Amino acid sequence: MAEDFAAKMSRKTDAELRDYVANRYQYREEAVLAALEELAQRGMPEPGAASIIQELQVSQQVTNEREQAAREREAENELARRRMRGDYPEEAEETGPALYSPSTITIFSVLFSMAAGGVLLALNLRALRRFGKSWLVIGFVVAYVAGTHFALQWLQQQYGNQYMWLGSVFNIVAIVLYNVVFWPRYIGLTPYRSRPWGGALLVCGLITLVYAILYVRFGLNPTL
């Protein structure tokens, strides 16, 4: 509820009212305007009150615009934080670019591989026109896939299939990095609309199907 400055000033002494005017830059514009009005009602108008009122009205408009902008930024940040938690309030109007959510990236990384999640994250960065960061993510995915492949290949040569379960561990580590390092650092609290993932699911499904056929026919050894 807005503060009733008129009622508040009616309880002030004359000296206190003039203090509001004399030190007006220390108080809210509404309070000083109410003090000027109360002085006028008491028959003791402040000299130069008209120019002071005009100055305060301009300052009040600037203050209101600044506070409104701050409220809008906080609302956007809160919406982004809720999206990061997977909370999508129906009443909130979706704004910003269409991006794959962290939950979508995680699900694709689990269903297919960390490479699929990395590609979705890179597509998000390209949608934000952060092309340099998108190439960093692609570079990470390529290096991680290659490193994991050779690590699992070496383990298989040394110990057989005893440690092949580490492939799932490597995948989980990549998912954690996407959510706690790449997204907070490269996307952060940017407001966004949830991007439909049906097309991405179809593409990943077809790639997986082709890979499975090649594996059955030629004995390819998937390591990730």
Rank of each mutant, 00 (worst) to 15 (best):
V110T: 10
L56F: 09
V141H: 06
W154D: 06
E74A: 13
Q61F: 07
M84S: 12
V180W: 13
Q162A: 10
P97Y: 07
L136F: 10
I172R: 08
R83A: 13
V169S: 10
R129H: 11
F131I: 01
P97Q: 04
N64T: 07
E76L: 06
N64C: 01
G167P: 02
G167S: 15
S101V: 01
R85G: 03
A70L: 05
G188H: 08
E67L: 08
W183K: 01
A143C: 05
S51F: 10
Q54F: 06
R185Y: 10
Q57W: 02
S51P: 02
E90M: 05
N171E: 09
A98R: 11
L152Y: 09
R73N: 07
G86R: 05
N171S: 04
M114N: 15
N124K: 03
P102M: 04
T63D: 11
E76N: 14
I107P: 02
V119I: 12
T95S: 15
E76Q: 14
V169L: 14
W165A: 09
T95D: 08
R130C: 00
N124I: 00
L128I: 03
G188K: 04
V173G: 13
V62Y: 14
T106P: 00
G117I: 00
L166K: 08
T95K: 13
R83Y: 12
S101T: 14
I52C: 12
L121I: 04
S103A: 12
G117T: 04
V180D: 12
Q57K: 09
E76A: 14
G160V: 04
W135L: 00
I175Q: 10
I53K: 14
I53G: 08
G167N: 11
L111M: 13
A174K: 04
F170M: 03
N161G: 08
I105H: 14
G48A: 12
Y159L: 00
Q156L: 03
S168G: 12
E76V: 01
R71Q: 15
Q68E: 15
V145T: 09
S134G: 04
E65V: 04
F108R: 02
Y88Q: 02
G118E: 05
W183F: 09
L166Q: 12
L120E: 08
Y88L: 02
A143T: 08
Y178P: 01
L155S: 15
N77A: 07
G147P: 01
A146E: 04
W165Y: 14
